[in-house]
Design a binder for these strands. Sequence first.
DNA 1: GTATATTTGTGAAAAATTGCACAAAGTCTG
DNA 2: CAGACTTTGTGCAATTTTTCACAAATATAC
Lengths: 222, 222
Amino acid sequence: MSIKKIPESTISRLFVYLRELSELSKLNIRTISSSELGERVNLNDAQVRKDLGYFGQFGISGSGYDINELKAALEKILGKDKTWNVAVIGAGHLGSALITYPGFQQHGLNVVTAFDADVKKIGKRFGGITIQPAGELPKAVKEKKIAIGIIAVPAKDAQEVANSLVKSGVECILNFAPTVLSVPENVKVNNVDLSRALETFSYFLVNPALSGRVNKAVSGKK
Amino acid sequence: MSIKKIPESTISRLFVYLRELSELSKLNIRTISSSELGERVNLNDAQVRKDLGYFGQFGISGSGYDINELKAALEKILGKDKTWNVAVIGAGHLGSALITYPGFQQHGLNVVTAFDADVKKIGKRFGGITIQPAGELPKAVKEKKIAIGIIAVPAKDAQEVANSLVKSGVECILNFAPTVLSVPENVKVNNVDLSRALETFSYFLVNPALSGRVNKAVSGKK
DNA sequence: GTATATTTGTGAAAAATTGCACAAAGTCTG
DNA sequence: CAGACTTTGTGCAATTTTTCACAAATATAC
Ligand SMILES: NC(=O)c1ccc[n+]([C@@H]2O[C@H](COP(=O)([O-])OP(=O)(O)OC[C@H]3O[C@@H](n4cnc5c(N)ncnc54)[C@H](O)[C@@H]3O)[C@@H](O)[C@H]2O)c1
Ligand SMILES: NC(=O)c1ccc[n+]([C@@H]2O[C@H](COP(=O)([O-])OP(=O)(O)OC[C@H]3O[C@@H](n4cnc5c(N)ncnc54)[C@H](O)[C@@H]3O)[C@@H](O)[C@H]2O)c1
């Protein structure tokens, strides 16, 4: 392992490899080559090897990677041997889906509290989690050792929530609100911009670079 | 406008600029410079100018960009003057949040149908949309001119749903299932990988490159 | 055991993206 | 209206990311 800078996109792909390796492991397959793995996740074989190469040597020339070994190595690298506590702020449509999603727990991410500003929501329960008043956040972050905050409030309230999280000491924020948050540089923000992910299609539909007949725009709007 | 290839990241940023311009327009601000706009969205000023430069010249030396003019130009470029019909497949926790989200409509993306394989879900209504049986999808895509499909089913069922969408002629798929989909190359898939977005934090928490006190891992798991 | 096949790990090349820096264009001040 | 600022648009440089390509290592066939 060197001091070279590791691209964030590499980290992101390691999770994809890991997921694939878990599937393969369940199927009792023992080894896989970088090209087979790459094919399964739509990536170049060299990309797979280079990504792994940032962290060491895991393969065997001529036969590839031992799936269980590589899986274990990636779990270690990615911190899967630890668990982290997560808070959801905003228990609306999206927030409540996130609170009850069992998949996060399987990955060592435990949603342990949720907050809302609306008195009608406070006290409600979603899958074992009771919604608390937003004002309780700073105290809860400390008491429950929250490492990650998920912002699922309307855009206009998102910065305020981010400030509160930062002030309480949370350094990882997953933001679902369609707005750009300002945070100190020690804080890591991941934006999940659903509208943008969907809107992007409208550009591709209007500029059909390649491809054939697509359903046409329904109207000229406005 | 040249024949130069436009980075997909540019398209993505244009939506961010547009969102910011809409806010500014509401505040009755008239003009903005690339550096001010860049600052608001955490980007370099040259980046802003270069992104816009792919599509033409919109600014005035010495004073910047007319907000309403640039907004209108971006809306045109991004296809915001059109509307598109969207189908949601999988009306579970996430799917139902997406079906009822009013923000998509504001961007010209109308969720007009939703499907589920579970008989208990069929016939249920979410904000004006009645859940239909999954088998109806091909017919509905044609009849309702669906241009975009949103996959919100469990990972194991996602490929099958993708196949069905593709076969019915849908060329844009937003995929929420944590799996890599195989589709023909004329089909555009955007993956929203929430688990990955959240899991990424665990790597950063384990490898605190910079920064100070973070809440520690809660346990050593497993 | 030798020859042939695979497949890794990694420099080096290629491609893509971002940032610099500056001429040209436009604004503002007095 | 002259001179001082401001800000755009863009070639070019720097950086980052991806891909190629090949020596070295291991496996397989006979
Ligand atoms: N639901 C979707 O499918 C969807 C899609 C794209 C983007 N989003 C974005 O995700 C965010 C949440 O969406 P949603 O549909 O769940 O909205 P929602 O209106 O259903 O829920 C938002 C919740 O946040 C709470 N809230 C408001 N201010 C708060 C504060 N300061 N502290 C704590 N709680 C507060 C509200 O009381 C409400 O319960 C929004 O920013 C939205 O734009 C949602
Ligand atoms: N809910 C979350 O917060 C969350 C977070 C991360 C990822 N995801 C992913 O998003 C997807 C949906 O999650 P969810 O929580 O809404 O799941 P869910 O179980 O609540 O809903 C899934 C729905 O899909 C339906 N379905 C199954 N097979 C189908 C088919 N072939 N055709 C049509 N419908 C079908 C099921 O009947 C169910 O109603 C999953 O892949 C999940 O891993 C969800």
